[in-house]
């Protein structure tokens, strides 16, 4: 195809996409029968959220960029700008391993479901896995699994130690075989850096969600590599995405200083969590076990707790002395961990 016909073709497709978007919006609007606010009036207000700081994990020499809970509900892996990855027993605040990475800005780390393996990566564009053991020096057993063409921003083990799903600045997501490093599936569709991914909670559903600097939130079929659903609404980079524990909705946090809730079955945004006094972007979001509370870590050093159903902020947590870069509810919902550019991690309960 010569370039003239190709650009014509592109022109045509852009027009078609635009008209389809309008039609789609019409379709979605038809079923937009009620607002969350009107339903929320019937709900009890949450009054006694009593989350307090319980632990402070000190040991990183620079900004904490990412963290993840171990399935054992008490260990945490964290990665930092100083090129270190630390395995903590958060309950006792002891450091169990400290690993030096070949790169600074280790932007992503994750615990495998077995709790015996961690993965991390960042500006080196790579995903490296480390089997954890008490006997050997952990770093001698490291293994580079995958390489992207730009930085790796997020990674997660999809209910298995044998595979790893990654998101990257090269605007793709990819599923890799841990043992062979083989690319099992790539996920193309974002037009800018992928910042965050999360798996659907149901093990039978082979889907995951991704958020990107193209402001889009996409739902993917892991088996076919196809994007199956897309959500627009954010006005800036989507920094964090998280499935509602019920699996039918996705919570997001963005640089536009809002968090949002998109419902998969209603196929649209159903809530915006914003406040005039919140002017900084949200870096990380997570939900409580019942899905009622949305925790969001912001660039203004705070964590805001939202009532997802009443669209109200119910509390805010001060403590960090710089941006909150990562935030996770522990697997059993008993605690919340936050990591910050102030180089500490905190556990709240």
């Amino acid at each position: 195809m010569d370039s003239a016909t190709e650009s014509e073709h592109i022109e045509k497709l852009i027009k078609e996409a635009e008209s389809l978007k309008i039609k789609l919006e019409d379709e979605r609007q038809k079923l937009n029968d009620i607002t969350l606010a009107s339903v929320a009036d019937r709900l009890e207000t949450i009054t006694c959220i009593n989350v307090k700081p319980r632990r402070v994990l000190k040991g990183h020499q620079a900004k904490v960029l990412c963290s993840d809970w171990s399935p054992d509900k008490r260990h945490i892996v964290s990665s930092s700008q100083d090129g270190k990855m630390i395995i903590w027993d958060a309950f006792t605040t002891n450091k169990e391993h400290a690993l030096t990475m070949p790169t600074i800005w280790v932007m992503a780390c994750a615990y495998a479901p077995s709790g015996t393996l961690v993965a991390c990566g960042g500006l080196d564009n790579k995903v490296t896995v480390y089997p954890l053991s008490q006997e050997d020096d952990v770093s001698t057993r490291k293994k580079t699994v995958a390489t992207h063409t730009s930085y790796m921003s997020c990674c997660v083990f999809p209910n298995s130690d044998q595979q790893i799903l990654t998101g990257s600045g090269d605007s793709t997501c990819a599923l890799w075989d841990v043992e062979s490093g083989q690319l099992l599936q790539s996920f193309l569709g974002h037009s800018s850096d992928v910042m965050s991914i999360d798996l659907a909670p149901s093990e039978t559903g082979n889907t995951f969600v991704s958020g990107s600097c193209d402001k889009m939130v996409l739902i993917w079929d892991m088996r076919t590599g196809q994007c199956v659903q897309s959500f627009e609404g954010h006005q800036s980079d989507v920094n964090s995405v998280k499935f509602h524990p019920g699996g039918d909705a996705v919570a997001t946090g963005s640089d536009d200083a809002t968090c949002r809730l998109f419902d998969l079955r209603a196929d649209r945004e159903i809530a915006v969590y914003a406040k005039e006094s919140i002017i900084f972007g949200a870096n990380a979001v997570d939900l409580s076990v019942s899905g009622r509370l949305l925790f969001a870590g912001y660039n203004d050093y705070t964590v805001n707790i939202w009532d997802t159903l009443k669209c109200q902020r119910v509390a805010f947590l001060y403590g960090h002395e710089n941006r909150v870069s990562c935030l996770r509810v522990s697997p059993d919902g008993t605690a919340l961990s936050t990591g910050s550019w102030d180089s500490t991690l905190r556990v709240w309960a």
Partner: peptide, 30 residues
């Protein structure tokens, strides 16, 4: 996406609410 079947926003919200009702006793934050 155009051919997708959708549910009403009201039922989506109802789903989220009933999920909360079911799981609130397992949510340590509550």
């Amino acid at each position: 996406s155009l051919t997708r079947t959708r549910i009403k926003v009201s039922s989506a919200i109802e789903n989220l609410k009933s999920y909360f009702d079911t799981y609130v006793e397992y949510d340590p934050m509550f």
